[in-house]
Write a protein that binds this DNA or RNA. Structure first.
Length: 826
RNA sequence: GCCCGAAUGGCGGAAUUGGUAGACGCGCUCGACUCAAAAUCGAGUACCUCACGGUGUGUGGGUUCGAGUCCCACUUCGGGCACCA
């Protein structure tokens, strides 16, 4: 290793030279390649894989710096660490670039991947590059298709006609989760509704498990992510109630407030649901059709606005109240959602604000059936939805809310008019897309046999490689549909002429299982090896942005549960712990081209060095907080790194020197730093780890310059500890220090320093003396001082005696030996 | 509207279980070295007060010998969901 040792004469810290020395070394030595047969405990540390949009940016730099701290720490702690990298490489931007440049999306995609890969390597991440994967490789999406077929086989992938979210700009459908504030989450265009036949995954079958299994994640996932998922799944308990209808099928509704049943004065069905057309009388048909026509021009953003004026059409038909036999008018309105519950609701205007707004607009009666002590809703305009006592409700008169609900359910069940029900906000996952650059859905449509899965041995259904430019332009139907040679296929069942399904899968399908593919990314026999999955999974630490709090994480959790049910894995949650790193802002705002406040990562790396940028990222604040580039100082970080490096350079003792005889103060500082770092890393306070390291470097500097001198064994010990701890954040500098100190590379594979507990025991501790809770004096005492001794010493202090005399004597003394005495006077 | 989270010097942020508020860094001031500069090293830096001392962790209350930390009410900011019956 003599090649790697800097020459003996003093040089100055040169990050470029240090980077040039170690980057090729790690690659050549395979420092971070995982040994599957390593018997040590496993740790799977995973960063959310990037989308290849141009080069890496500041956000990547932060997130991957955090993940690498954890991976490197776990490695030095004696674990066999799997820390892989790959690319989420299907998706729209590649397709748009291809249309613009008259090229195939693969060109843009793989060029960007190479750029990013080179940047990731330069960034010094402790990745196992041999496991690299790309979701757009046929070798990968073959298995995405295979998984689709497994879901299909179990009835979890199905097609239905339904109103779907449609982005007029991207010319494709969107999942519910991809509609943000009524707009497309990619381009922001207002989403419209369109009735289409589309593929869905039946995630709703897993709603309960997705909720209940969150118990496993409690404490290890950010609370807000768990809250968002709970909210998204939105379980509400209540009752189904059936209302008989004159000359038609009964209408079933869902309600969370069956106790308000006596307050029903009307019913409403979703105007855009087929049910409305079924119920409408001939006399009202024309009016309903006109209303439905008007609704088509209303954007989702408008429609979702809660304070919008209520509109609706009377259907001319009446339902029968199941308890009173009263006749109830049925309306159609757009304030009722077609795809939640049954698409119909019972209107209880007194106790539901939306129903009240509707009733007041249409002049419908408002009957109070829960006495909450508030003003009559018809007068106040505010529905009373809170706690209260049932009134005008013969079968549960006088009961408080919760009891009334229970009683109402019982009454409904006895009368056969309804039963207790659970409803979810979660909808099935719409997975088909009318775009080119994704995994084709492996289904063949046969005029005789219908929907036929592509046989597994014929996977992958590969994308055409010659398509380019205008071939890929969005047309409202999949571009694949225009490639007739590709579309034509023989039916696998009957051999007759048939056509391929021309839609591709949502890219979130690709990313729902990639963490399993890393376990054997090149396998041509299986999606992933079950044995290795059960050994490596679940991921011990997942790191990524909070923007995936719902979509990707929910889908991955769903996939894992499906795989568990199929018997392919023996765990039910994919990610044991989750760290959401914050964003890198500039001037309080997210960096963006339109604001012109972007900071180029490569320029910063050139100017300050990789390590300085990484230290700046980690030191700027707690990992989960947003950090602002304006508040950061990569130059300051570089200064610290140079300081640390010089400490190692100044060490004159030989490697292997016994530290026992070294300066006691510095030894204690070094061991205290290691002990603190362990706790701080467990608490994910990486910024404080850096602060502690700065203190240690300062202490070592002082010892060298004005203490025991550079030859003191404690200086070597401190330098070694610094190199090891620093390697979590600044791998290049640390590696160079480690080599200067005469050790074999790599510091990344060195053993985490052992804390000598006896060095942490201090000779004296500072006891604070308070009078009535205010700090008045301090005492240096032995750590094992008795309470009586400490009290006596404190009371004997002249300053304290003065306060006692002034304040009228001692009333009480609280002693917490050896840290504190509080004298209560008066 | 509902659900989460946050608020500490000029700035980013520290502060196991309630027990020295402001670690560490940035910035700023001064000094050493230098012909000079850079780099480096050292000292100082919450606020008020000449000082003794006093005041201080978004606001107002409370619990406690003692509160940044616990409880109640509120304010502001950030995030999520939202006509989900």
């Amino acid at each position: 290793m003599s090649d790697n040792q800097p020459s003996a004469e003093k040089q100055s810290y040169d990050f470029a030279e240090i980077e040039a020395r170690w980057l090729p070394y790690w690659e050549k030595a395979g420092t971070f390649v995982v040994d599957e047969d390593d018997p040590r405990p496993k740790k799977y540390v995973l960063d959310m894989f990037p989308y290849p949009s141009g080069d890496l940016h500041m956000g990547h730099a932060e997130a991957f710096a955090m993940g690498d701290v954890i991976a490197r720490y776990e490695r030095m702690r004696g674990n066999n660490v799997l820390h892989p990298i790959g690319w989420d490489s299907f998706g729209l931007p590649a397709e748009n670039a291809a249309i613009k440049n008259n090229a195939h999306p693969a060109e843009w995609t793989y060029r960007n991947i190479e750029t990013q890969a080179a940047s990731f390597k330069r960034y010094g991440l402790s990745m196992d590059w041999t496991r690299r994967l790309h979701t757009s490789d046929p070798e990968y999406y073959r298995w995405t298709q295979w998984l689709f077929l497994q879901l299909h086989r179990r009835g979890l992938a199905y097609r239905k006609d339904a109103p779907v979210n449609w982005c007029p700009s991207c010319q494709t459908v969107l999942a519910n989760e991809q509609v943000v504030d009524g707009g497309c989450d990619r381009c922001g265009t207002a989403v419209t509704k369109k009735s289409l036949n589309q593929w869905y995954f039946k995630i709703t079958d897993y709603a309960d498990r997705l909720l209940d299994d969150m118990d496993q994640l409690e404490g290890a996932w950010p609370e807000r992510v768990l809250a968002m998922q709970r909210n998204w799944i939105g379980r509400s308990t209540g009752a189904s109630v059936r209302f008989q209808v004159e000359d038609a099928e009964p209408i079933e509704v869902f309600t969370t407030r069956p106790d308000t049943l006596y307050g029903v004065t009307f019913m409403v069905v979703a105007a855009d649901a087929p049910l409305a057309m079924e119920l409408v009388t001939e006399a009202q048909r024309e009016e309903l059709e006109a209303y439905r026509e008007r609704l088509k021009s209303v954007s989702e953003i408008e429609r979702q606005s809660a304070d919008r004026e209520k509109t609706g059409v009377l259907l001319g038909r009446h339902a029968v109240h199941p308890l009173t036999g009263e006749s109830i008018p049925i309306w159609a309105s757009d304030y009722v959602l077609a795809d939640y519950g049954t698409g119909a609701v019972m209107g209880v205007p007194a106790h539901d604000q939306r129903d009240l707004d509707f009733a007041l607009t249409m002049g419908l009666p408002v009957n109070v059936v829960v006495d909450t002590g508030e003003e009559h809703p018809a007068v106040s305009g505010t529905a009373t939805a809170g706690e209260g006592t049932a009134v005008n409700s013969p079968k549960w008169e006088g009961l408080p809310k919760q009891e009334a609900i229970a009683r109402a359910v019982q009454v409904l069940e006895e009368s056969g008019a309804g039963e207790a029900t659970v409803n979810y906000r979660l909808r099935d996952w719409l997975v088909s897309r009318q775009r080119f650059w994704g995994a084709p859905i492996p289904i063949i449509h046969c005029p005789d046999c219908g929907e036929v899965p592509v046989p597994e041995d014929q996977l992958p259904v590969a994308l055409p490689t010659e398509a380019k430019g205008e071939d890929l332009a969005p047309k409202g139907t999949s571009p694949l549909g225009g490639m007739s040679e590709w579309v034509t296929a023989d039916c696998p069942a009957c051999g007759g002429a048939a056509t391929r399904d021309t839609d591709t899968m949502d890219t979130f399908v690709d990313s729902s299982w990639y963490y399993l593919r890393y376990l054997d990314p090149t396998s041509a026999d299986q999606a992933f090896p079950t044995e290795a999955a059960n050994r490596w999974m679940p991921v011990d630490q997942y790191v990524g942005g909070v923007e995936h709090a719902i979509l990707h994480l929910l889908y991955s959790r769903f996939f894992t549960k499906v795989l568990y049910d199929i018997g392919l894995v023996n765990f039910t949650e994919p990610f044991k712990a989750l760290l959401n790193q914050g964003q890198v802002l500039n001037g309080g705002k997210a960096m963006s081209k339109s604001l012109g406040n972007g900071v180029d990562l490569a320029e910063q790396l050139d100017a300050h060095g990789v390590d300085a940028v990484r230290v700046a990222m980690v030191f700027a604040g707690p990992p989960e907080d947003d950090i602002d580039w304006q508040d950061m100082s990569p130059a300051g970080s570089a200064k610290f790194l140079a300081r640390a490096w010089r400490v190692a350079q100044d060490v004159t003792s030989s490697p292997g020197t016994d530290p026992a005889s070294g300066a006691a103060g510095l030894r204690a500082a070094a061991h205290r730093t290691v002990a603190d770092a362990e706790q701080l890393i467990a608490d994910q306070k990486f910024n404080v780890v850096v602060a502690r390291l700065m203190e240690l470097v300062n202490a070592a500097r002082k010892e060298i310059d004005s203490g025991a001198g550079p030859a003191d064994p404690a200086v070597r010990e401190a330098a070694e500890v610094t190199a090891q701890l620093l390697s979590l954040v600044a791998p290049y500098t640390a590696e160079d220090m480690w080599a200067m100190l005469g050790h074999e590379p790599s510091v990344a594979n060195s053993t985490w320093p052992q804390v000598d507990e006896s060095l942490l025991v201090q000779d004296t501790v500072t006891a604070v003396v308070q009078v009535k809770g205010k700090l008045r004096d301090k005492l240096e005492v032995a750590p094992d001082i008795s309470e009586d001794e400490l009290e006596a010493a404190a009371l004997a202090l002249p300053k304290i005696q003065r306060y006692i005399a002034e304040d009228g004597g001692v009333r009480k003394v609280i002693v917490r030996a050896p840290k504190l005495v509080n004298v209560v006077t008066g």
